[in-house]
Design a protein around this nucleic acid. Sequence first.
DNA 1: TCCATACTTAGACTTACGTCA
DNA 2: ACTGACGTAAGTCTAAGTATG
Length: 160
Amino acid sequence: MNRLPSSHEDEELSHGGSAPPCKKLRLTKEQSRLLEDSFRQNHTLNPKQKETLAEHLMLRPRQIEVWFQNRRARSKMKQTEMECAYLKRWFGSLTEQNNRLHIEVEELRAMKVGSSTMTSTSSLTMCPRCERVTTAAIPSMAVVDVPAKKLMIPPQEREH
DNA sequence: TCCATACTTAGACTTACGTCA
DNA sequence: ACTGACGTAAGTCTAAGTATG
């Protein structure tokens, strides 16, 4: 069932035969499908479930056990890869946002230079918490709002 | 079309660690 | 506190499958 046509020896072994350890087998599509279904329902199996599944698929319980171990590991690896890719995208978007804000600060400083009566342009600072540009000397005097839509928080993150 | 080779996938094993009786 | 059985994660090996020139 779970074996290449050339060898029914391994097939017997995969069912718990007494011969020496069998060579690596490939599961059939049907076996893989059922295992995947089972994995979707539960990522771990209790001994009874393992036994039942093994019987149903005509595999040794140990094979079921190993399959689930590998499946969990690969599932975790895939999840990590996805998270990594997501964080990279987010980092890119934050960098972009940061660059734009720096440009904006420079523009505002330039504007300040133009209006002679105001405080020194070097006193303009960006509050890291509220994302507003303020004059450090007299904070109450000049507060420039950065529209909330400019904060490029990825949708996935906003949900949480 | 066939073949050799490189690369990928997945079954199996080993080891280390945590939990529990 | 110690011990053995058991389950799991992480790392690794390697046969089998696939892509490529």
